[in-house]
Design a protein around this nucleic acid. Structure first.
Length: 578
DNA sequence: GCCGTTTTCGGCCCGACTGTTTTCAGTCG
């Protein structure tokens, strides 16, 4: 069984147990197991084969046993007992925002409704209000919740949501009583997709700010409204939460709503050990209730616990608190660390700027080098370069380098298609001349995992390939990653010295955070590039930086932070070792 | 069900908002 299949079965167990009213901590244990599996890149079968299940956090005796059952037999006793104990439709009912497990169970038992559709019909027929604990208002709200759930979006790519959230932020900042508004939640943590928008702020008149918030352009509905917490629906189909407080309490509020839930839970556990209590209004001594600090600086939360500051991107409970305690937090890469980029396009293929314009833009950004990597000959839709045009481009770049000497160094290169058989779309003698060869899959994504893995592995083994570009081919919101054994690709990259790209194009963000972290842990080197098709495009590193920082990458892990001599050595190294 | 520099048993983050069973349970983040 795949990790995904096992995770879905544990999730099913959690859903059923929750509706049955089981111990909520047991339910949480199964949900934690689901999250832990989702964060893995290695198949559970492989982990089991090397005896590693015990090391997965949240995996205890019972869950390890059930995981082994799933791997060996495809099921386990508890799953067989539970899978039909609660109708799927009742689980769907419970999953509707605002409904929940207790409500779903009560209405299932009282009215025998077993799906959102049946529940909707019962509410329309005013049968819900007769159930003990329910009334006409709840019945009306239930109908609204069901209708709303059909309009709700799934998670959306961050590049869609971030500009929208910034617009809401600016509108709120325009009000006189508002002192500060910041983006929090998964937007601030830089997740590739976002399920809601979290805003936190300071207001001297929260009621007025909240009222105005519910009337902002694009806000379609108010879900809850209070002076500290108001939630609305926006026309992206996402929930937007605004939390307000005073300047004294803003630091802890910002911290709380910028961190993943699991991070907060673990942090509060740690506080408990130290005789402290954390909530979104402060850090307090448990005994005396004394408040340890006030103010707008969220770093004080960590100081109070004797920890170094943990950047938002790391706050996912993926080992950051343990690393902080040991003083082993990474020095996360920043935009200022970059000395150049190794993957961009010019008017030679499908870019909008000439090589000279790209060079000037890169120099203005303070870069020491820029590799021009236009598309290869077979990618005709992108005006891929023939052998002759590529040779001409190399000449042009050499001439430009003489002219630009002292300002910036252009590197010759190409983004070469990885063809269906895994060979590179170029002539060996030309590839050997280039400073940087990026290899990418652009055609035939739909091969099966074995074919795609063999194809990419062959390219990685190719001595001319320096960088594997956008390794999984995903397009956020449009196309899933193609099926590939990423573990095998990473291992081959480590062995051959091939550099793995974190492509920063907003719709790609590829490698993802999880895979990039895995690559780093396995000893691979990485590069972060905008894949710019215009001069302005070179400014779009932030999307890749979100992934890189969430992957714990440090400047030393990313070769385009190196000075040019070290960079050249790293690339030569790749060719020599392969 | 998980977990342990007080513990192998007895805890498990914490608070806002809502509707109603009027003192709190349910839901959410």
């Amino acid at each position: 069984m795949t990790n995904h299949e096992i995770a879905r079965r544990f999730a099913r167990i959690a859903d059923v147990l929750e509706i049955q009213g089981e111990n909520p901590f047991k339910v949480r244990a199964y949900r934690r197991a689901v999250d832990a599996i989702d964060a893995l890149t290695e198949p559970l079968a492989d982990i089991e084969a090397r005896g590693g299940l015990e090391n997965i956090e949240g995996f205890g005796e019972a869950i390890i046993g059930k995981t082994r059952d799933f791997l060996r037999t495809g099921t386990t006793k508890l799953y067989e007992q539970l899978k039909d104990a609660v109708p799927s439709g009742v689980i769907e009912m419970a999953a509707i925002p605002g409904v929940g497990p207790k409500t779903a169970k009560a209405l299932w038992e009282a009215l025998q409704v077993t799906s959102p559709e049946e529940l909707e019909a019962a509410a329309r027929e005013e049968r819900v209000r007769a159930v003990p604990g329910f009334g006409a208002t709840k019945e009306k709200n239930l109908l609204a919740a069901i209708e709303r759930s059909r309009r709700l979006s799934e998670r959306l790519p961050i590049f869609v949501v971030l500009p929208y959230a910034e617009r809401l932020r600016r509108e709120l900042l325009g009000r006189p009583e508002v002192g500060r508004i910041e983006l929090a939640g998964s937007l601030r943590r830089g997740r590739d997709t976002v399920g809601d928008i979290d805003l936190v702020g300071i207001s001297s008149d929260p009621d007025a700010t909240m009222e105005a918030f519910t009337r902002l352009p694009g806000i379609t509905e108010t879900l809850i409204q209070g002076p500290a917490d108001t939630a609305v629906l926006c026309d992206l189909g996402l929930r937007v939460d605004l939390r307000l407080t005073s300047p004294e309490n803003f630091g802890t509020l910002l911290h709380h709503f910028s961190s993943g839930q699991a991070h907060n839970i673990k942090l509060r556990d740690l506080a408990d050990e130290k005789g402290l209590k954390i909530n979104e209004y402060g850090v307090f001594r448990k005994e005396t209730g004394e408040e340890l600090f006030r103010g707008e600086d969220e770093a004080q939360v960590y100081e109070a616990l004797g920890l170094p500051f943990i950047p938002p991107e790391l706050r996912e409970d993926r080992g950051e608190i343990e690393a902080a305690r040991r003083g082993k937090l990474p020095r996360l890469i920043t935009e200022a660390d970059f000395r150049g980029q190794l993957h961009c396009h010019s008017t030679y293929s499908d870019g909008k700027a000439t090589i000279r314009e790209m060079a000037q833009a890169a120099a203005e950004r303070g870069y020491a080098y820029l590799a021009i990597t236009d598309h290869s000959r077979s990618l005709q839709v992108a005006n891929g370069l023939s052998r002759e045009r590529l040779l001409a481009q190399i000449e042009e770049i050499r001439a430009l380098n003489r002219e630009l000497a002292g300002r910036i160094t252009l590197l010759t290169g190409q983004e070469v298609d990885i063809l269906a058989d895994g060979s590179l779309d170029g002539d060996e003698d030309v590839l050997a001349q280039l400073d940087v060869v990026v290899g990418s899959v652009h055609i035939r994504h739909r091969e099966d995992e074995a074919q795609m893995t063999a194809r990419v592995l062959k390219a990685v083994e190719n001595p001319h390939l320096d960088i594997l570009g956008h390794p999984t081919g995903r397009l956020l919101g449009k196309r899933e990653p193609f099926p590939i054994d990423i573990e095998a690709v990473i291992a081959a990259a480590v062995r051959t010295g091939t550099v793995l790209e974190v492509n920063a194009a907003p719709e790609r963000m590829d490698l993802s955070d999880v895979y990039a972290r895995r690559a780093k842990d396995a000893g691979a080197r990485l590069t972060v590039n905008t894949d710019a098709h215009s001069a302005a495009g070179l400014g779009g590193l932030m999307w890749g930086l979100f992934m890189a920082r969430r992957a714990w990458l440090e400047p030393d892990d990313v070769i385009n932070t190196f000075p040019i001599d070290r960079l050249r050595a790293a690339l030569k190294d790749a060719a020599a070792r392969a």
